[in-house]
Amino acid sequence: MPSETPQAEVGPTGCPHRSGPHSAKGSLEKGSPEDKEAKEPLWIRPDAPSRCTWQLGRPASESPHHHTAPAKSPKILPDILKKIGDTPMVRINKIGKKFGLKCELLAKCEFFNAGGSVKDRISLRMIEDAERDGTLKPGDTIIEPTSGNTGIGLALAAAVRGYRCIIVMPEKMSSEKVDVLRALGAEIVRTPTNARFDSPESHVGVAWRLKNEIPNSHILDQYRNASNPLAHYDTTADEILQQCDGKLDMLVASVGTGGTITGIARKLKEKCPGCRIIGVDPEGSILAEPEELNQTEQTTYEVEGIGYDFIPTVLDRTVVDKWFKSNDEEAFTFARMLIAQEGLLCGGSAGSTVAVAVKAAQELQEGQRCVVILPDSVRNYMTKFLSDRWMLQKGFLKEEDLTEKKPWWWHLRVQELGLSAPLTVLPTITCGHTIEILREKGFDQAPVVDEAGVILGMVTLGNMLSSLLAGKVQPSDQVGKVIYKQFKQIRLTDTLGRLSHILEMDHFALVV
């Protein structure tokens, strides 16, 4: 994948999101292997301009796509893939009243899908469409860049269908997702969380590099694949309309690839034109409109599966009536509230959605109805927002919020430890010299600072030695090549209790 991002070429006709291997024109390309080798690009942008032909009021008969309808489940399912879809609609009884809503608040519980998330729908649909058009064949390999849930859905379907599955996901995604993927037989590649989507090191860039190296491999490409919004247009939206008897006044959905909100909203605009569509985008993402909503100094966020630093091709923002931004604290607070007060075992993005819903639905009156999409299960986040310690460490809970008995030293300040200034190293000294210094002084790690004293990161003896043994660096290389740029900081005025929580999850903390 090139470091400079080429513009994806656009073909003359058809839909841009065809499933299957992508040609340089962004659509299915038939021909000899030699032709494909000559024409197939190194990668295709996940934010390529959409060429979708959908228009409100256009006859369904003019759609270029294969459409399906929700099917009634048999008493005995032939395999677990038949437990994807037909998820329950559940009334939220307490939270709406707590925040003064007059309307009825309903939750579409997508964590009841077989793999635990709304992404099971698009995973199965992308595979079925690729099999139907002859792209996927027995023994082929599926590769997908994902925040985890699409990966789980694909790995689940691949396990049943017999495909090899490789999932490329950023490091910030939970260990629970990784464990589930491994249990399903998927191979996992992790990428830096802070890598831009168009960087060769991003999950998108690495996935395309693997595709170019592995024979008979395919990126189904949830960011561009029409099967993504079509899955929701054909099934999720129809289920909502049936469950609500066609009567709903507002739908609120958090947005990642945009397939969920695009597919549902398009069908609702056709069948229930008075329904307002509300999009939820986390602070630090750029999906919301108008652009002024996205202006923030924050560039990272903890909530998973929603928000991006690019506009995915499948996201149709014209069908969203209003956007709201959400933050991590309210997302996790509301997710825990949904679990504790409503018994809905949902993930953090569901918290984002409901946090926005109780604001947006203030305009609705008694007798009206708001539906929220709860995308995934708490299963993926047992060591994250479900953990009091994690919430404390991230600053989303305060010590006084917890009532468990603490040891005698818990409320003492870090400054009472009488710490001395640490050994520091410059980023320009060599790895070999740094190892000598650390061994001589008896230290395992040291902060790396520039000549102005600005902290650049941390270097550890173990990481340097393993990097040297693996051949990633040489003793003569500058130590700046092996620094940890993500590390926890703590102030002298913070409590030892807070430091204790940090050290339970990290090997060190830097006192500043």
Rank of each mutant, 00 (worst) to 15 (best):
R45M: 08
P273G: 09
V118R: 02
E104G: 11
E270L: 10
R121W: 02
L181F: 02
T87D: 02
G274I: 15
K108G: 02
E34Y: 15
Q7W: 02
E34F: 12
W208L: 05
R132D: 15
A107G: 13
G246V: 09
A186G: 06
R132L: 07
V10Q: 08
A237M: 07
I143G: 06
S32Y: 10
L220R: 05
R276D: 04
N216R: 06
Q7M: 02
P64G: 02
T236C: 05
H203G: 06
L101C: 07
L268R: 12
S63C: 11
E110F: 05
D129I: 06
V10N: 15
P46W: 02
T141F: 12
L28C: 08
G153F: 07
L28I: 14
L210S: 02
R121P: 07
I95F: 09
P6V: 04
S50P: 09
T150F: 12
K119V: 02
K137T: 07
E37R: 08
S63P: 07
S175E: 10
E104S: 10
E37M: 06
R121S: 02
I44V: 14
H17E: 08
T262R: 04
D129Q: 11
L77V: 10
H65A: 02
G246I: 14
C109N: 10
L248C: 09
L136H: 02
L230G: 05
C275G: 07
A159P: 07
A237C: 11
T260Q: 12
A253V: 09
A207W: 04
G263E: 06
V168L: 07
L154W: 02
P64S: 07
K267L: 10
R45C: 02
G185L: 02
A71R: 15
Q243S: 05
D79P: 02
Y163W: 04
S174A: 07
R125F: 10
E34A: 05
K108F: 02
K211D: 05
R266I: 10
N212C: 11
D238L: 04
K271Q: 10
I240W: 05
P12G: 07
T68L: 11
T146M: 04
R58H: 13
R209G: 09
S3H: 08
L184E: 06
E104M: 02
G162F: 04
A38M: 07
G139C: 10
A195T: 09
Q242W: 04
V178F: 13
